[in-house]
Design a protein around this nucleic acid. Structure first.
Length: 456
RNA sequence: CGCGGGGUGGGGUAGCCAGGUUAACCCGCGGGGCUCAUAACCCCGAGAGCCGUGGUUCAAAUCCACGCCCCGCUACCA
């Protein structure tokens, strides 16, 4: 790890520190019901900690993949003999990929290849907030794909990939990337070049009688862009790779503008022919550079060029007849983005009185509050549910209330919860609270009622 | 509490590890040009001195120290 300069700053320093401080014993089972049952003596009823087995899923998945293809042994090519294994993860998963997985691989003694690099990013946020499934912060993948083509999402997300710091997805940014970068810069260049070719050269790539210095410079730009792209992508700097492509399209637009083929085509047709030939070479290059970023679009470009990926790599040869160009992208409007989380809530379905019944909402009185040891946010709270029934809950209220503020309060609880365990403590009911922007307010009856009273 | 990452024009991102021309790029904004193209494209300009304080150095956004704030890890948000 010390020698591996490929590791991003966050993964490298964090992991090295852990090791230098000395690795501590770590339990590899959990008291959760779901998961793989632990087959060890004395671990009855426990399951294996996900990260201990999930990382091995990378290998299982490779094996499975090739088994289904009928190439039983092929998976070995990917895990032995100098294979370069790259992981793409968020910062919260660093130790599992830099320490636990390598440790497991080494412990097997079978010579598995260790991770070549772990491309760990910071976090992506959504409109300034953390993504949250339970609070429906974010966009669900099925909704996303119904709204816009997958390449719009890929392009935007790659261009704001949190490679150095936490980064923020906003609809504003989405509009900017799709409309300005994809549509206006990349899409429009390709479209103007192709339509011009069809209109004035019968959709056929002309041979360039002579290239002037500007033509040659543009071709050099294309080569440089390819090299830079290669280098940057090899360093997993995907964000910069996206930029490199957009930059090439900008240079191409400038080139096209400066050359003014719409003027030269009538008087100096040869010059226009050179311009168009060079432009088409650039379009082909774009289809290659876009392949790893937005493959659907890259493919679409090649379809209209009538080229395969292999052919596009070699460039566009004169005489090539292209298809009728179609715009690759379209602009999207603010209205189309809408804000969807509300819609998500509806999907839960309409509630019936029976559903409410099922929750067993009751008023309870807080009779005991105590901080859970070693926990930052948790209180263990005992509640009087009336009729002599006292139940316990573990609630994340420590950052919002002091114990004395809670003691004696009447609150609303879900009394029919399936018990769960947190920090080794049993939690039997759930205490209701309103949550807003990270602040919490517990629900309490407006006038005193007896503990155990039903809530409808 | 400890440890790791980060705080850069109005918005979004690079640069920092290997200090050094007028701090880069995109969007937005102001002005101009073009008219082939999806009112798209191109050019010019205004706008930050890089969280704060101190230090090292001929020279710091870049290195060091301290402080403030954000994010992550640590069996935790019922």
């Amino acid at each position: 790890m010390e020698e591996n300069r490929r590791l991003p700053e966050n993964a490298r320093n964090f992991s090295l520190k852990l090791i230098r401080e000395g690795l501590k014993p770590r339990s590899l089972t959990r008291d959760v019901v779901w998961g793989i049952p632990a087959p060890f003596p004395g671990a009855q009823g426990k399951t294996i900690y996900v990260w201990m087995e999930a990382v091995l899923g990378y290998i299982s998945a490779t094996i499975e993949y090739f088994r289904l293809k009928g190439e039983e042994e092929k998976w070995r090519d990917y895990w032995f003999d100098g294979a370069r294994i790259v992981f793409f993860i968020g910062k919260d998963n660093i130790p599992f990929h830099t320490i636990i997985l390598p440790a497991l691989l080494m412990a097997s003694g079978e010579g598995y290849e260790l991770p070549w690099t772990v491309s760990s990013t910071e976090f992506l946020m959504f409109e300034g907030k953390k993504f949250s499934k339970s609070q429906r912060v974010g966009i669900w993948i099925d909704e996303a794909l119904k709204m816009f083509p997958v390449d719009y999402w890929r392009y935007t997300l790659l261009s704001i990939r949190p490679e150095v710091r936490d980064t923020n997805f906003t609809w504003e940014i989405f509009l900017e990337k799709v409309n300005s970068d994809l549509n206006d810069t990349v899409g429009n260049f390709i479209h103007r070049a192709l339509t011009f070719l069809c209109r004035h050269f019968n959709c056929q790539v002309p041979s360039p009688p002579a290239l002037d210095s500007y033509d040659r410079k543009m071709l050099e730009e294309v080569e440089e862009a390819k090299e830079a792209f290669n280098r940057i992508l090899g360093q997993m700097r995907i964000q910069q790779a996206v930029q490199a492509v957009a930059d090439l399209a900008r240079k191409a637009n400038k080139y096209f503008n400066d050359k003014e083929p719409w003027k030269t085509v009538s008087r100096r047709r040869d010059e226009a022919a050179a311009t168009l030939n060079v432009s088409l070479q650039t379009v082909a290059a774009l289809s290659i550079l876009l392949e790893p970023l937005i493959p659907g679009t890259a493919e679409a470009i090649r379809r209209s060029l009538n080229l395969s990926l292999q052919e596009a790599l070699k460039g566009v040869s004169e005489g090539l007849k292209i298809g009728r160009p179609q715009p690759l992208f379209r602009k999207i409007s603010r209205e189309e983005t809408g804000v969807k989380p509300e819609k998500g809530e509806k999907e839960v379905g309409e509630a019936t009185p029976e559903d409410l019944e099922k929750l067993g909402l009751k008023v309870a009185k807080i009779v005991e509050v105590e901080a859970v040891p070693r926990a930052k946010k948790l209180y263990r709270i005992r509640l009087d549910l009336g009729g002599g029934m006292v139940k316990q809950t573990v609630a994340g209220l420590k950052e919002h209330y002091k114990p004395e503020e809670l003691l004696g309060k009447l609150v609303v609880v879900v009394s029919n919860m399936k018990p769960a365990e947190l920090m080794g403590l049993r939690s039997e009911v759930m205490l209701l609270a309103a949550v807003e922007e990270g602040k919490a307010a517990i629900l309490t009856p407006e006038k005193p009622v007896k503990p155990g009273s039903r809530v409808y």
